[in-house]
């Protein structure tokens, strides 16, 4: 399902520093790192390490070659840190984010608020394919969804998880699966592991 060709679904690619940029901020969801993942990033970002800041979110790992990383407990702290940067960010700066899709879009949304445009942002999907699902009916959000149909955390309706994706909400659309025939719920399968 990650490879759905629906046009609203973002495409992600490996992070690669923009050599023309003035400053570089790398934000990594530590739990999604594969063995050797940090070393790979250190290789990729070696040309810009003098102007690189690295934020590691979650586990406090050592990150040789990525400057002196700053450790943040959770994505909410990233959002706060972006909003509170005293000197702000410049038009020549770039933000690189790696992690699960909900993580990527939480950070991207916060970055947009402080002025980062899409051209200043790179997103790389890593870790689980679990989805954040937005309920079309109650507008509640259900996190860490791994199944094709999921009970809404807000209203309890069984939602069919569509591929249609909203960057603004960082979420996939969920629509009541048995609205036409109440109780007719298809087999629930693990599809976004």
């Amino acid at each position: 399902m990650l490879h759905s060709d629906i046009k609203s679904r973002p495409t992600y690619r490996a992070l690669e520093p923009d050599l023309a940029a003035a400053g570089h901020l790398l934000v990594i969801e530590a739990a999604t790192l594969q063995p050797g993942g940090l070393a790979g990033l250190a290789d990729a970002f070696a040309p810009v390490v003098a102007n690189l800041h690295t934020w590691l979110v979650g586990e406090a790992l050592a990150a040789p070659g990525l400057g002196k990383p700053w450790h943040l407990p959770a994505v909410a702290d990233v959002v706060d840190a972006l909003a509170c940067a005293t000197r702000g960010y410049g038009i020549g700066d770039r933000l690189y984010v790696q992690g699960t899709e909900p993580f990527l879009w939480s950070v991207a949304t916060a970055a947009a608020i402080v002025g980062f445009g899409p051209g200043q942002l790179q997103l790389c999907h890593a870790g689980s394919l679990q989805r954040r699902v937005w309920c079309t009916h109650c507008h509640g959000v259900t996190e860490q969804v791994t199944t094709n149909v999921v009970p809404c955390a807000g209203c309890g309706r069984h939602l069919l998880v569509r591929d249609h994706f909203s960057r603004r909400l960082g979420a996939f659309m969920g629509v009541m699966v048995d609205a036409e025939a109440p109780g007719e719920i298809p087999a629930i399968e693990e599809v976004f592991a």
Binding site: D5, I6, K7, S8, R9, W134, T136, H139, R162, D163, H164, F165, S166, R167, R168, L169, M173
Partner: peptide, 26 residues
């Protein structure tokens, strides 16, 4: 859903439409 689609680009909000993307209509 407008609340879901607001802010989307042209290709994004037409994402769910079948068949038409492949023919280059959009």
């Amino acid at each position: 859903s407008l609340e879901f689609d607001v802010g989307m680009s042209f290709m994004e909000w037409h994402g769910p439409v079948p068949l038409a993307h492949q023919t280059g209509v959009f």
